[in-house]
Design a protein around this nucleic acid. Sequence first.
RNA 1: GGGGGCGUGGUGUAGCGGCUAACAUGCGGCCCUGUCAAGGCCGAGAUCGCGGGUUCGAACCCCGUCGCUCCCGCCA
Length: 596
Amino acid sequence: MYKTHTCGELRISDVGKTVTLAGWVHRYRDHGGIYFIDLRDRFGLTQVVINPEDSPELAKLVADVRVEWVLQVIGEVRARPADAKNPNLDTGDIEIYATEINVLNTCKPLPFSINKEENTDETLRLKYRFLDLRRERMQKNLILRHKIIKYMRDYLDAKDFLEIETPILFKTTPEGARDYLVPSRIYPGEFYALPQSPQQLKQLLQVAGVERYFQIARCFRDEDQRGDRQPEFTQLDLEMSFVERDDILDLMEDLFTKMCKDLVPQKKILFSPWPKLTYQEAMDRFGKDSPDLRFGMELVNISDLAKDCGFTVFESAIKDGGSVRGINAKTLGEYTRKQLDELTDQVKLWGGKGLAYVKISESGEESSPFKKFFSNEKWEELLKRMEAEKGDLLLFVADSKPAVVYDCLARLRVMLGDRLGLRDNNKLAFCWIVDFPLFEWSEEEQRWDATHHPFTRPKKEDFDLLSTDPGKVRGDQYDMVLNNYELASGSIRIHERWLQEKVFDLIGLPRDVARDRFHQIMDAFEYGAPPHGGIAPGIDRFVMLMADEPNIREVIAFPKNNAARDIMSGAPSPAMEGQLRELHIKVVYPEEEKKS
RNA sequence: GGGGGCGUGGUGUAGCGGCUAACAUGCGGCCCUGUCAAGGCCGAGAUCGCGGGUUCGAACCCCGUCGCUCCCGCCA
């Protein structure tokens, strides 16, 4: 080893020892003779002192040392003078009095600074990711990610789960997200697909009698990027046999609760046990199925009051099958016309037609463009239902499409929650969303579509509805939600062939296509498939939230950029002609495609 | 596929029609023996992403283009 101790472990009790440290020069200070070097490794910082009176050759060597050089330092641990201690450093009571220094490597001037936090263009950070990751913030994130994954492994191991790897080269399933394809050299014109998730395989493992499976699974989806999406991402993939919904929920709730308490003790879980909201309840109260439960400002339905009020905007929305709902933005009653206009513009950007408001000033004065349409009784009822008080701002969205009303108010709620400082990152509001509709009607395709995936089992009490009213069928599906983010999605699966076929029929998947793509799982269902279910929390997203990072690139060692490119290596890149020939592939560029 | 924002020394920013393009930090040199974001002095470093246009004059206005980023679509 190049070192006897790390740069983070020496204390006052080690004074007198001769030690060897190795690491990077975090900072150096030259006082015209006496030199200080803050030596850094993954474990901390230790101050090294070089005194030219005792060792003139050392001082000569050190004069050339620059930031991020790699040094090995041999010396004596000394207590610092009382007035020179540094309470900000774990090792601040001591310093190393150097007797020998070996330069293990030098370092060019940096493209950006490592020893201080500053905004840096992300392209540059990604290009020099190996330097970016040296920074304290990134090291913290890597460590936290490791701890979270280790916690999951240890916890599940203790619960008798088996970690089993499933293939990265598998079969394409064209529904859902686009697949990444891998050409086969041996079979011209045939392709593997990288898994969007190990869904079928983990179900097959249940048929195989594994009973409790998990995997830290890499998943691949060829879709456009977002701050919380990458072409490849990692899930805690999990599946169990002989379980019902609450068995899975209880297990996950226990794991995540303990994990948060142990790994991020500064963050407080607001509700225990976690609330369970039905999908419908989540929509009605918060306008979305991944609500932020850290604050109120819940949606209120005033459709009945607005129905015959005389205000055309409200009336026509309801007449055309929609609704009118509002939120009470507490304490914003003094918003100016300009600020309200900005909110309205925002709502229009989200697809809403506009925003109706009631301003109540601190003195109790009400102003609203639609008050004149309401009778006194109805107006009083409106204020009462909205729990309106002096200084409040009531905001309403009306639309013939219920989804638009939900969506606009949900976004508005989160936006105003931010402005009012109600979304404290040290509060964790976990909840479960249950009883999702199993199918939704696709206008585009004019058929029913699985909302989650086609393996989700319908709730038993809704079996009859499969034939009569598919839109009303609820799935035995559940989402884990934390602070406005969907963290995990799971379900009890279908384990009977007849039921699986029925669902495939309903979503308009022709029998022969179903057979081609899913024959392995359909066959398996006929060989004693046990009842089973599972869930898959997204690890990147969870680590991001625990690390208070704004996007998942900050918690992935080597992420792709927004255009799915790896800036560091340049991937994807053209393949050599020989490789393509071997793979029986001919590239047709978009321009040529247009011509033909 | 569509929309918004950004692009100025190595890095982070200012300048938004009239400059020799400013500041901080970093870099190089000199001074300084107890600092810890050390300090002081001096110096080098930018054809303002690229192309075109408007103008007497463009970093600044317009058009196009490229790159990054955020959002919509998309993500069973």
